[in-house]
Nucleic acid binder design. Structure first.
Lengths: 346, 346
DNA sequence: CCCAAAAATGAAAACGTTTGCATTTTTATT
DNA sequence: AATAAAAATGCAAACGTTTTCATTTTTGGG
């Protein structure tokens, strides 16, 4: 039985490279970390030797001293959902630009699972971590704090967050789309949002939506507030329910995925969007612009957030942790497309 | 200026834990790696000490001896696309089950970029890597071979692949959907596929589709073969083009994303699916089942592939590399939904 | 109870780098 | 050309574990 073959056969180390280049290992190390400090001819010899041998650095060994591993963590509720994949891609490729790599994991909206994931990432010595939202388990936060790891919260902007954050104003987003519907004359409006426990993004959006009703002295009846998971099929099913029972003239969806389901629900029932029902979403995911009708929604710059978060985390590494917790708000754009129209007075 | 603060303040190591538990560091190490070898009372003391101190293992330091880092790489063409996010999620969570973590990166269908990514992952000492498809740069493959890293190719099944693979028979998939359309009486069929260079999945699917035409002694005119990126918007645009110029009665899309675009194109043009145009896809992504009409497609079990790949890679680690290259085919299911119908004889 | 065998633990040498300090080489100044 | 200062390089001690080998403790059979 080939017990954990220790082979590591053809892998040359810094020492082999040094020997071949006729320098000391220290110099080879410097060549890779601070090239400007080694003389040009030496540099050339090392470069040659390394390439001859097919040398590949062992960042892990290096990290023993450094205390920097060059990997940064990202924990999202779920990967398998248009909501976050854009973010992930942007975060990852921006890290690559900084010569870092991404360790990613999903907790499936289960904050308890997040704790285990944080631990697992910490065991791998991440240099920093980005978390979605501001709702997290204390245990996880303590582990991070004790180790003094840069943490930032992304996706939701919260002026008073105890963590640095980069995100959008979800409250405002909820307001904007709801107001748009009211401005169009709709009054019988259904609200379909994701479960808000442990999900500050959804919570804020819903708060925003409700605040508009309040301002207008309108009360959405309990009957008009619905909870729905981030799933097109579920949303469609629920949509059909709502459209046949409550018969709203418009639906505010907490998220584009839900909107997609709602639009399909209308189509399945033979109702026209926006003539019979107006629908708005939040997010502006891939595809939302191109479906028929195009979805009226709010563009949440996922790419921008991912990219900024990567930059920020790297910066926190390189310049030591800033004492000040910064909050960065990214802009959102209202995309007025074809899924909403003024209420047809019958 | 806080130059790369070396702090690592509150982080206790194995030594602190050992001291507190009144044992040697060696025993603490054993406690974590082979618990059964340490006596129960000792185990308890160590456990207590570790939890008191908030100790978190440093797997990196451990990996110096082990030659196993506990991280496994996954390189995909893109994360930000329904195509792969399901795979990624499954792969990642199955790794978590095996107490491994995932390092992931996307090359954007650029095989040259893949080389750099492979190097970067190798520098982080991955224990194995999963690559999508069988088309890869030789340099990358050599780096992996030299280091003797377990590699598997996923997504496409190829009996003769030089790499172990886990995937679906894309050739058969192409055949099935195409045959379905021909069986329904369609003859004026447009083929819309992704660029096949460096993309064996698309290539196989297209080959499969064309093989059916050949068998039936039919020739798809050059006019009927189109290339399209994996993007709903682009697909929709191209779809509108095709539907207004070539006026096919059916479209075979190389992938569900393209199908979505094609369906929206029909809707934008006021054509009914499937009455006026039949459309088939390949993949069965999230949402395909629920759109209106439901997309007729082939279910590619991305979750299953991801999960199997994770298992396989871990197994290759634990039992030493098997000398035999294995090829595993995962089943696909044809999903006959609402987007196809028999040709209306005019 | 005794002793051999087995089980549990400890001591110390790795693992492949980085880095502070010492040494050598180069450069600049006079 | 001599020398001081600066730049380049080398030496060896880390980094935080795991693991081999040696030692101690426990177990079980007579």
């Amino acid at each position: 039985m080939a017990k954990r073959s220790r082979s590591r056969k053809g892998a040359p180390g810094i020492i082999e490279v040094a020997a071949r280049a006729g320098v000391s290992p220290a110099t080879v190390s410097r060549f890779f970390n601070t090239p400007d400090v080694v003389k040009s001819p030496t540099r050339k010899r090392i470069e040659q030797a390394a390439s001859d041998l097919g040398y590949i650095r062992d960042r892990m060994a290096g990290s023993m001293h450094n205390r920097f591993s060059g990997t940064i963590g990202l924990i999202v509720p779920t990967i398998d959902n248009a909501i976050f994949s854009e973010l992930i891609e942007a975060f990852s490729s921006q890290l690559l630009v900084h010569d870092r790599t991404m360790l990613i994991a999903a907790h499936g909206y289960d904050l308890k699972r997040e704790v285990g994931i944080v631990r697992s990432l910490l065991e791998r010595r991440i240099d920093g971590i980005a978390l979605v939202g501001q709702d997290h388990d204390t245990i996880a936060m303590n582990m991070l704090a004790q180790r003094n790891i840069p943490v930032i919260s992304i996706w939701n902007y919260d002026q008073d967050s105890y963590l640095p954050c980069i995100g959008a104003d979800n409250f405002a987003a909820g307001r904007t789309v709801t107001k748009h519907l009211l401005d169009l004359g709709h009054r019988n409006i259904s609200l379909v949002f994701a479960d808000t426990v442990g999900n500050d993004r959804a919570r804020e959006r819903l708060r925003g939506a409700l605040s508009v009703f309040e301002e207008m002295q309108l009360q959405p009846s309990g009957q008009n507030l619905h909870t729905c998971p981030y799933d097109v099929g579920e949303a469609k099913k629920l949509g059909i329910d709502i459209l046949t029972s409550v018969k709203p003239s418009a639906i505010v969806c907490g998220n584009d995925i839900i909107s997609h389901g709602a639009i399909y629900a209308c189509q399945a029932l033979g109702m026209r969007v926006p003539e019979d029902v107006s629908i708005v979403g939040i997010g502006d995911f891939r595809g939302s612009a191109h479906m028929e009708p195009g979805l009226t929604t709010i563009r949440l710059p996922a790419k921008r957030i991912g990219s900024l978060a990567a930059d920020k985390l790297v910066a926190m590494n390189e310049s030591g942790m800033p004492s000040k917790v910064t909050h960065q708000k990214v802009e959102m754009n209202f995309m007025d497309r074809g899924s909403t129209a003024a209420l047809q007075t019958p």
